[in-house]
């Protein structure tokens, strides 16, 4: 648990808008994150959900886990559907034709495949047009719903069913994880953040900020997947913490172009602490791990430079 007052958990909103009985695997951090997001946004919001784990496990007919209005159309278009909902609610409220005149938050949610790969165009369009909505990507770093195929969000060295580590090619995934957070930030939108349910208050705070920010907000949420990452389900929350502590997944936000770390660590753990509990990295040798350590250090330094530059500008 994050380094807060031990009793802080009691202060989280008690209401639930994502019911139990959903069909997610044991220890699914995506569902944990979605539950925390739902808690934070409360009653007055509408979800446009992409096809993916979150969609199928929460909406198996005749059931729905959602206690708020929810629509699923297809895989690659959550951002576009949400754009439509946002535009419609806005114009209907203006014309006095919408049944609710309170502010309604519009939330698009999708997995990494639905965001960084097939949904990238619709996402870019929605961010560029400036719809007042939140887009959350729940990143479990592969196509888990279809059986753990690699996406462009799969990290270097991870074995998946379409980037398998084999005798002739022992590495697994050859490419670096696509930096979608920077792509979102490059749209000059007012709010971009990374988040993780391993830091529930940081996540909830960011969702709150995103909902209060006029215009588009993008949150990239790191959601460990015990099934796809081949690790024990009880580790789903702790591994997310190690990801932050080892600089693999730093927690930061970009507010109007200004970078700020939201969770910092006095001392960082080596990446091996993060890689070791996960079966998807078990095949890596020392050289591979050293290479990953180098990559992680380098991108973290790059991030720190941006943070530093932002704080200088603020001075």
């Amino acid at each position: 648990m994050e380094n807060l007052n031990v009793y802080a958990a009691k202060m989280a909103p008690q209401q639930e808008f994502l019911a139990g009985g959903h069909r997610a695997c044991q220890g699914c951090a995506e569902l944990l994150a979605a539950r925390l997001v739902a808690k934070t946004l409360g009653h007055d919001y509408i979800i446009a959900n992409a096809t993916g784990c979150l969609e199928i496990v929460t909406s198996s007919y005749p059931h729905s886990a959602w206690e708020v209005p929810w629509i699923h159309v297809a895989f690659e278009n959550a951002a576009a559907v949400a754009s439509g909902v946002e535009a419609a609610v806005k114009i209907l409220q203006k014309k006095g034709k919408y049944p609710v005149d309170r502010k309604i938050t519009i939330l698009a949610q999708a997995g990494d495949g639905g965001t960084v790969d097939i949904g990238l165009q619709a996402l870019s369009g929605a961010l560029e047009r400036g719809h007042d909505m939140i887009y959350i990507c729940y990143d479990n770093e592969a196509y888990m719903n279809t059986g753990v195929q690699r996406s462009s969000s799969t990290p270097y060295g991870a074995t998946t069913t379409t980037s398998p580590a084999g005798a002739a090619d022992p590495l697994g995934q050859h490419t670096m994880k696509k930096n979608i957070v920077e792509i979102a930030a490059a749209h000059n939108i007012p709010y971009v953040a990374t988040a993780s349910p391993s830091y529930p208050f940081d996540l909830m705070e960011k969702v709150k900020k995103a909902s209060e920010t006029p215009g588009p907000a993008y949150i990239h949420c790191f959601v460990p997947c015990p099934t796809g990452w081949r690790m024990a389900p009880n580790l789903a929350v702790s591994i997310g913490r190690i990801a932050a502590e080892s600089k693999v997944f730093p927690l930061y936000e970009v507010v109007n172009g200004e970078y700020r770390m939201t969770v910092t660590h006095k001392k960082h753990r080596p990446v091996i602490d993060y890689l070791k509990p996960q079966g998807r990295f078990r095949h890596l040798n020392e050289d591979n791990i050293a290479e990953i350590q180098q990559q992680v250090d380098k991108s973290y330094e790059r991030l720190l430079k941006k943070v530093k530059m932002s704080s200088t500008e603020l001075d």
Binding site: I71, A80, G84, V85, A88, Y98, Q121
Partner: peptide, 23 residues
Amino acid sequence: AFIPVESEHSAMSVCAGTSAAGA
């Protein structure tokens, strides 16, 4: 609301959203 989308795929997807919201 005139929504100048980035593709026809999104045009029809936006229409799904607007129509589902009652427009």
